[in-house]
Simulated scan of single mutants.
Amino acid sequence: MPHRIRTLLHPFLIAFLALAMLASGCGSKPTPAEEKRQGGEAAPAPSSTASAPQEREFKHALGTMKLTGQPKRIVAPYIEDALITLGIQPAAKWSLGDLVQDYLEPHLQGVPKLDFTGGLNNEALLSTNPDLIVLYTTNLAEKGAYEQYSKIAPTYVFNDATVDWKQTLKTLGDMTGTSDKAGKAIAAYDSKVANAKTKLQPFVKDKTFAVIRAKPKEIQLMDGSFYSGLVLYADLALTPHKLVKEWSWQRAQTLSLEKLPELDADYIFVLVQSETSRPLLEQFQSSPLWKNIPAVKNGHIYEMPSNYWMASGAIANTAKIDDVLKTLVK
């Protein structure tokens, strides 16, 4: 090749080689200074533990339960009120034969029943494929049941979840990552209670109250420490009749016709467990002893839905307050 042509090509050859070297370095890792000039940051090195679910421990009535991650399929018989309040659909719902918690049915369409007739069927529980089981009372964990349930899924046992429904809600909120919803539900309930007490005050001052329950074989004077008693006497601060305070405060007692004249409360709420309970109630109602108690004579006997008056939770207790307001505030 003539010398003049080689001289002319020399600059082009250098440029070509420089471009080739630049292209070959495109896949190499930029230096920190280059990253800063380009306005980006290096991706963090992958970590094998960064996304691993954490294991948490929860102490309960019968020991300690360990949970890994947030449970999704929860079976909490008779505490469905709390799960619904937290925006969680249970994997199964409590039943006793055909009896279910009717007031929750609008929220539980399509949820399979878990029948407690004769005790819980472990095969039925297993078929729900739970990743968390919650028992509302230690009674459900007796005779080796707790050990059997624990083999199916992590199992938490309350002493009695229905007594302090707010703490029950907080505990479930902590387990399921819904503590914010638990707090909001409790605040809304407390606000409702405060407003209800203000509305009721002119109508309930110096008045006494009682709740009786008709069952197929007995009429009970209900206690003041569970279910409706907690709402009426603790939350709404209604005055329990002296017979309630002195005789049935801690445990419902069988109310005989002979005892009935002592129940001279100003207002009586009546709960009917089922239609098979109504004949005995009608027998009471036909007695002169019933007709002569003040609440009957003054037209202050009110039948209320047994279903949620014998339940506990934000939904049930809110409904009870609504019933009391509709009945007493004129």
Rank of each mutant, 00 (worst) to 15 (best):
S95V: 01
L169H: 02
S51H: 09
K170L: 15
S127Q: 14
Q109R: 04
G25E: 10
Y233C: 05
L86N: 01
A20I: 08
P32G: 10
V157Q: 01
L271G: 00
T178M: 07
A161G: 13
L108F: 06
Q283G: 07
R73G: 06
Q167W: 11
E282K: 12
Q70D: 04
P11F: 05
L140V: 00
R73K: 11
D164W: 01
H300E: 06
D180F: 09
Q273E: 15
T168H: 04
P288H: 06
L86G: 00
Y103Q: 03
L263H: 01
L108E: 07
S179F: 13
A295Q: 01
T178K: 14
S228T: 10
V296Y: 01
G25C: 15
R278D: 15
G40H: 05
A20Q: 10
L22F: 09
R251E: 14
A42V: 11
W165K: 01
N307Q: 07
A20T: 10
T168K: 00
L230Q: 11
H300K: 08
G118L: 02
I321F: 03
D266C: 08
Y103E: 06
K199Y: 11
L120E: 04
L114R: 01
K170N: 14
K143L: 12
S28I: 13
S95H: 05
F203P: 02
L108I: 06
A43Y: 07
